[in-house]
């Protein structure tokens, strides 16, 4: 159990290192892409070319991805700082967000289903 926890912590620190590397590349290259996405691509390539072994990151990555919602909680609490989100404008904003999210999700899902079915019929 204790070894497991130590492993997870070391792996998260390792992932943090890759993030910092991604941040550095983003800064130097002036790409409009955040360091976290560059870090993700780097890690993917490193795994693909066997520079990084899966077991070096598997446990830490598993914990971070499965508890992802936790990392959004402080920002969600932070919404209280914004007066704009309450009152009439707040209701309008939330209405737009809800309607637009429904349309986006429905379109994305329908297109994905449609393309897959079309592909399946050809085979």
């Amino acid at each position: 159990m204790r070894i497991q926890i130590a492993k997870i912590i070391v792996q998260i620190i390792f992932l943090y290192g890759i993030l910092l590397l991604g941040d550095g590349i983003a800064k130097v290259s002036h790409l409009p892409i955040p360091g976290s996405i560059i870090g993700l691509v780097l890690l993917f390539l490193a795994l693909q070319f066997h520079i990084v072994k899966l077991e070096w990151v598997n446990l830490g990555a598993g914990l971070l991805t499965s508890e992802l919602l936790l990392f959004f909680v402080p920002s969600a609490v932070g919404v209280v700082q914004y007066d704009q989100i309450v009152g009439i404008i707040g209701i309008k904003l939330v209405t737009v967000i809800v309607l637009s999210t429904i349309v986006v999700m429905a379109c994305t899902g329908l297109v994905a289903d449609f393309v897959q079915k079309k592909g399946a019929k050809k085979v």
Partner: peptide, 14 residues
């Protein structure tokens, strides 16, 4: 931790 968590998504994709 959202930063390293984003990097971590390379694992399921891989």
């Amino acid at each position: 931790l959202l930063g390293p968590a984003t990097v971590a998504f390379a694992v399921p994709i891989y």
